[in-house]
Design a protein around this nucleic acid. Structure first.
Length: 454
RNA sequence: GUGAUUGUAGCUCAGUCGGUUAGAGCGCCAGAUUGUGGCUCUGGAGGUCGCCGGUUCGAAUCCGGUCUUUCACCCCA
C-alpha cells in the first residue's frame, strides 16, 4: 500500500455514526437556546489578524493559526527580517489573516460592525468550529466546536441566571450529571485588595486556580515564586481554606472583604444569582467556587464553569461576564455575558457513558432488494409512496446477489427488507422480511406502511 | 513551547539474543447456500514493520533525525 493519507495533528474525521451522535448534541443544545429566545449567527472561519491578536493574552497569540498571504508573499517581506529569522516580526509581514480562536471575540467584532442593525439586548447563539495550535491531549483538539450563547447590551444579572438555567436544561436533556461552578471576578479583585496585592490579581488567580489540583502548600509556594509577600500569602490563607455551603462561604467572605468596595459588589452579585437559582429549583448543583479563576482576561463579573460529575475530562462548558469586550473594537459601554458549550468534550462524555437515546442510531427502516430493471422500476414507485408517508426507505442501486444486498441491510441496521421479484410482481404482492426475527410474509403493497409503524 | 511516550495487515495486537519465508484474532472477498443477512465450515486477498538516514555480513529489532499517538507542564472547551 502506498503511503496513507492523513489529517493534521489534533483534527478528526467523523463517520456517519459519529455525525448522527454529534447532531443529536447540536440539535439538543440549539433547541434549548431557541427556547430562551437566542437566534443564530455565523462568522467567517478566518478573521483579520488584528481582530484576533492581543485578545487572548501572550499565550493565546502563540496558539493562533495564521494564514499566509496569497501570491508571492515573501517578496514583500523585509530581507533583513527574513535573514534574522525573527518569526514574530516576520509574521506581520507575510500573514494578515488567522483562524478564529473562539467565538466570543468574532462576536464582539460582529456586534460593533453591525451595531446599527441590531436590536439590543442582542441575544445570539453560534455553533461553529474554532482552532487552536495547542498540543493535543485527551479532550483537547486543534479543531473543535464551540456552542456559544451570549447576550450583549444588558447589565442585568437575570442574564446570568438565564444562562445557568440554559446549562441546567441542556444537561438535563442530555442526561449528564453536572455541577455548575460560579465565581465572580469582583470577589477575586476584592481578595487581592484585601491581602494588599490589588495589582497582582492575575498572579493570584492563576495560582489559586490550581488549589484542588496541587494543594494549598504548593499554591503558596507558587504565589511566593510569583513575588507575593509572605504577609500577603498569610492573609490569603482563610480564603483558601474556605469551606461549607454557598451561604456559609458568602457569610465568611462578607466579613473578610467588608472593606473592599469591589469585593462587596461581587458578593452581592453572586448572592443575587444564587438566590434566583434557588427559587428556580434547578436540577444541577450550583456551587460558589473561589478557586475558579481561569478564563480569559476579559471577564469582569460572573465566571462560570461546568464539570461532568461522572467523567474526568475537565470543563465541558465555561463562560462569564465581560463589561467592555466591544470597547476594543471601538464601542464603549456595552456589557455582555455568555457561555460556551464544548461540543467535542460533551461528545466524549456521552460516548463514555453511552447516553445516547436509541433513535439516534437509526438509518433506513426498509430496503428494497434490486432484482433487475423491471423490478427496480416498481420498487422505485412504491418507495416514493412510502417516503411520502414518512417511511425512511431505500432501493439497493445495483442488481447484486441477494446475499450481498441482505448483508448490506444487516450491517446498516435496516430492520425490514422488501423482496419484490418476478413471482411477487406477477401476484401484485411483495415479501416483507423482518431482519430481527427472521420472519417473512407475503403482503400487499398498501399494507407495508401499517406493518412498519407497529 | 518544555519533558516523556507510542507507531507491525482495514482494526486490536504478538514477534525471543539482531538471523534467512513477519504471525494471530477480528474484519474483508469467494465458496458450502443460482431468491435470503446474522451462526458454522472451507479457501483467498491484504505488509515499504510510520518516514529518512546510520551501525552491521545481516535491522521490525540497535543508534540519530523527523512525523504521528498518548501523557504531564503551560494554557484551555
Amino acid at each position: 500500500m502506498a503511503q496513507k493519507p492523513s489529517i493534521p495533528k489534533g483534527t478528526r474525521d467523523f463517520s456517519p455514526a459519529e455525525m448522527l451522535r454529534r447532531n443529536y448534541i447540536f440539535d439538543t443544545i440549539k433547541g434549548v437556546f431557541q427556547l430562551y429566545g437566542y437566534l443564530p449567527i455565523e462568522t467567517p472561519a478566518m478573521e483579520n489578524l488584528d481582530t484576533l491578536l492581543g485578545k487572548y493574552g501572550e499565550e493565546g497569540d502563540k496558539l493562533l493559526f495564521k494564514i499566509l498571504n496569497s501570491g508571492d508573499f515573501l517578496s514583500k517581506a523585509q530581507p533583513d527580517m527574513l535573514a534574522a529569522g525573527d518569526s514574530a516580526k516576520l509574521t506581520g509581514q507575510i500573514s494578515e489573516k488567522g483562524l478564529r480562536y473562539d467565538l466570543t471575540v468574532p462576536f464582539a467584532r460582529f456586534v460593533v460592525q453591525h451595531q446599527s442593525e441590531l436590536n439590543f439586548p442582542f441575544k445570539r447563539y453560534q455553533i461553529q468550529p474554532v482552532w487552536r495550535a495547542d498540543r493535543p491531549q485527551r479532550g483537547r483538539y486543534r479543531e473543535f466546536f464551540q456552542c456559544d450563547v451570549d447576550v450583549v447590551g444588558s447589565d442585568s444579572l437575570l442574564n446570568e441566571v438565564e444562562l445557568i438555567q440554559i446549562v441546567d436544561e441542556v444537561y438535563q436533556r442530555l442526561n449528564i450529571r453536572v455541577v455548575v461552578k460560579l465565581n465572580n471576578r469582583k470577589i477575586l479583585a476584592g481578595i487581592a485588595e484585601y491581602i494588599g496585592a490589588g495589582d497582582r490579581l492575575v498572579d493570584i488567580t492563576v495560582a489559586i486556580d490550581k488549589l484542588d489540583k496541587i494543594g494549598a502548600e504548593k499554591v503558596n509556594m507558587e504565589l511566593s515564586e510569583r513575588g507575593l509577600s509572605a504577609a500577603a500569602i498569610e492573609k490569603l490563607q482563610p480564603v483558601l481554606a474556605l469551606q461549607g455551603s454557598n451561604e456559609e462561604k458568602l457569610e465568611l467572605l462578607s466579613g473578610l472583604l467588608a472593606e473592599s468596595e469591589v469585593g462587596c459588589k461581587g458578593i452581592e452579585e453572586v448572592k443575587t444569582v444564587l438566590d434566583h437559582c434557588k427559587d428556580l429549583a434547578l436540577q444541577s448543583q450550583v456551587e460558589l467556587d473561589l478557586t475558579l479563576a481561569r478564563g480569559l482576561n476579559y471577564y469582569t463579573g460572573a465566571i462560570f464553569e461546568v464539570k461532568a460529575l461522572d467523567v474526568a475530562i475537565g470543563s465541558i462548558t465555561g463562560g462569564g461576564r465581560y463589561d467592555d469586550l466591544t470597547g476594543i473594537f471601538g464601542l464603549k459601554g456595552v456589557s455582555g455575558v455568555g457561555i460556551s458549550f464544548g461540543a467535542d468534550r460533551i461528545f466524549d462524555v456521552l460516548n463514555q457513558l453511552e447516553l445516547y437515546p436509541e433513535e439516534v442510531e437509526t438509518a433506513s427502516q426498509l430496503l428494497f432488494v434490486n432484482f433487475g430493471e423491471q423490478e427496480a422500476a416498481h420498487a422505485l414507485i412504491l418507495a416514493k409512496r412510502l417516503r411520502k408517508e414518512g417511511i425512511r426507505c431505500e432501493l439497493y442501486p445495483d442488481t447484486a446477489k441477494m446475499k450481498k444486498q441482505m448483508t448490506y441491510a444487516d450491517k446498516k441496521g435496516i430492520r425490514y427488507v422488501a423482496i419484490m421479484g418476478e413471482s411477487e410482481l406477477k401476484e401484485g404482492v411483495l415479501t416483507l422480511k423482518d431482519m430481527q426475527s427472521g420472519e417473512q410474509k407475503t403482503v400487499k403493497p398498501e399494507e407495508v406502511q401499517r406493518l412498519l409503524q407497529r
